[in-house]
Design a protein around this nucleic acid. Structure first.
Length: 605
DNA sequence: CGGGAAATAT
DNA sequence: GATATTTCCC
């Protein structure tokens, strides 16, 4: 017989059965009952769902022995085994895995089969039990986790308690402990990021942009991974978001506050100075997180971005020097990283993007504009929308009102520039396209990438875009209210993964992702802008505060978008400017509370 | 039990 | 090759 590549397992199974008369055990990651049945009906003795536990294998052996015994005694048994799958039904893979409710996350993998000499399949079930299904921290699950943690307060959140609060079956304390470990790590990163930012700010004058960037990158990176991973599983679902988001929302603000007060994070290292406060923030994570998330997305890209930035550098450096927006900066860098693909875009745009435009506009405003621009491109859909999704809304609702207004204003602006926006978006896309890389990346790396660009452009779905834009806008708008912002952010954070992850699917994602990518560019630009204008005076305080607390994330997002927009638009300087104005106002507003924090942090530093 | 870190699985 | 989870150990 010949085994060709195109031959699937079932064909092979038949061949083996016909020509070799060997007992065959099918192995596949696909636990679909239909497939199992098919395998068995095609002559497989057993069908094991991967991953296969050792116990299962052990059992197989035992069965072999048993079979031999039976054989001698009663051939029938043996026969049954080999020949017809039906007799083996029991061995159905399905059985094995599911101890827990969740059982197998479904994977569509391909099926593989392998034959093995003798065996009977029955036993695996016994053994099967042994196998522990791998817990996939879906957004939903993570949402519950976050809600539980928030409820308990980070300090009091220990695996056992979290597990109780989550009230989810199928996961063990160990699972929760592990996830908590990861979550803490994540928070830590965030906090460090913020701290770094702060430091940078404090340093204002003298820091190396490069070092800063590095830091930011690191932080982001971590997130990203987290988010990305999570995202994957989730990706399919739109639904999850809602639930997840809500959950988060619930806990949210109040929780975050607690955390802050308590503080406690342990920060590792460096940033400690800030850390306490920061740490808290980190715990808070929600707030900060957004930025991080964004950053995370971009990660890969960093180098390019940096280069780009550097090129633009002067401005950038200036910005830094001024210290206007450390946070932003960071985010920018992070963005940059992620952006890679974007980077290419940027490059292409570069000249234009680079400076001029950005400089002029205010970052924030610009951002808004950017967002809007996107929206425009999307088309008003946004309006329709529902925006945002409730999920989001949960946290944001309040702000929504504001946002809306902002939006409107923004929108107007965009309209005015409207042509551009669309063009921008398109351009954007195109640019990216060329970069197939982006897409490619997306597919490969996944999540993050998709995010942005793709969605954007293709996005087809309008909805996504809209939402994104909305969110973004909202964020921008929020900036004013730190608290609200925070909450929103928090939520996101909570979802952090979710958001990112989702990006593919949901709006959130989109927005997040989108933003980041864009943001990558944007941030820089933003920075630049600030530098130029706004930043100087107030900026420090306001910005800083932002960076520290949640605001920054938002800002970043908006920035990002903005940047993106800018990039896209370039041409639309006008448009930017207009937006900028509006933003500026917002920004300042927000920080009061944050400022305090900032101040403290700064002083500490 | 909780946390950190090595070992694995994806 | 890197990350997410699991497992092991203190």
């Amino acid at each position: 017989m010949c085994i060709c590549q195109d031959m699937d397992g079932f064909k092979l199974l038949e061949l083996v059965g016909l020509e070799m008369d060997l007992p065959v055990i099918m192995l596949s990651a696909n636990s679909d009952t239909k497939l199992v049945m098919k395998g068995i009906t095609h002559g497989a003795c057993d069908y094991l769902v991967k991953p296969v536990r050792i116990e299962e294998l052990r059992n197989i052996w035992q069965h072999v022995l048993r079979r031999k015994k039976f054989d001698s005694k009663s051939p029938t048994v043996d026969e049954a085994c080999q020949g017809n799958g039906k007799s083996l039904k029991e061995s159905e893979p399905t059985g094995n895995e599911d101890k827990n409710g969740k059982v197998n996350r479904k994977r569509k993998d391909e099926e593989e089969e392998e034959e093995e000499d003798e065996e009977n399949g029955e036993e695996n079930e016994d053994l099967a039990t042994q196998k522990k299904p791998r817990v996939v921290w879906s957004i939903e699950l993570h949402g519950k986790f976050v809600a539980a943690v928030n409820q308990l307060g980070i300090e009091k959140a220990v695996p056992k308690r979290i597990l109780d609060l989550m009230n989810v079956e199928g996961i063990s304390r160990e699972n929760v402990a592990s996830h908590l470990q990861k979550y803490r790590l994540y928070l830590k990163r965030i906090s460090s990021m913020s701290s770094l930012q702060e430091n940078m700010v404090s340093a204002l004058g003298g820091w190396n942009s490069s070092s800063i960037r590095m830091n930011s990158l690191d932080g982001l990176g971590g997130f990203q991974t987290l988010s990305a991973r999570e995202t994957l599983p989730i990706s399919g679902l739109s639904s999850y978001q809602t639930s997840g988001m809500l959950g988060r929302l619930n806990s949210p603000s109040s929780i975050s506050l607690r955390n802050l007060s308590s503080s406690a994070l342990i920060q590792p290292s460096h940033t400690q100075t800030l850390s306490n406060s920061i740490a808290n923030l980190g715990k808070f994570r929600p707030v900060v997180s957004p930025a991080n998330q964004n950053a995370g997305l971009f990660q890969g890209i960093s180098a390019q971005l940096e280069l780009n930035q550097l090129q633009q550098s002067k401005r950038t450096s200036e910005m830094f020097d001024s210290g206007c927006d450390p946070t932003i900066f960071t985010s920018a860098s992070s963005l940059v990283d992620n952006i890679v693909p974007v980077g290419s875009l940027i490059n292409s745009l570069p000249s234009a993007s680079s400076n001029p435009l950005f400089l002029q506009g205010n970052p924030q405003q610009t951002l808004s504009g950017g967002v809007f621009g996107n929206q425009n491109s999307f088309k008003v859909n946004s309006l329709n929308s529902e925006p945002f999704n409730t999920g989001i809304s949960g946290s944001n609702f309040l702000s929504n009102g504001r946002c809306n207004e902002n939006w409107r204003s923004t929108i107007q602006v965009s309209k005015f520039s409207s042509n551009n926006p669309l063009s921008l978006s398109r351009t954007f896309n195109h640019d990216r396209l060329p970069p197939n890389g982006m897409r490619t990346n997306n597919s490969s790396s996944g999540l993050h990438i998709q995010i942005s660009p793709l969605d954007f452009s293709s996005t087809g779905t309008i909805s996504a875009p809209l939402e994104d834009s909305r969110e973004i806008q909202c964020q921008a708008g929020f900036i004013g209210d730190v608290q609200s912002m925070n909450q929103a952010t928090d939520e996101k954070w909570g979802d952090y993964k979710m958001d990112y992850t989702q990006n593919s699917n949901h709006i959130f994602n989109t927005s997040n992702t989108m933003v980041p990518p864009n943001g990558a560019v944007g941030p820089l630009s933003r920075m630049m802008d600030q530098h130029n204008g706004v930043c100087n005076g107030k900026i420090d305080s306001s910005l800083i505060s932002q960076s520290n607390s949640s605001p920054s994330p938002l800002v970043q997002l908006s920035e990002i978008e903005k940047s993106a927009t800018e990039l896209k638009t370039r041409s639309n300087e006008d448009y930017h400017l207009g937006q900028m104005k509006s933003q500026g106002g917002l920004v300042h507003n927000s920080y009061d509370s944050l400022d305090d924090l900032m101040n403290e942090m700064i002083s500490q530093v």
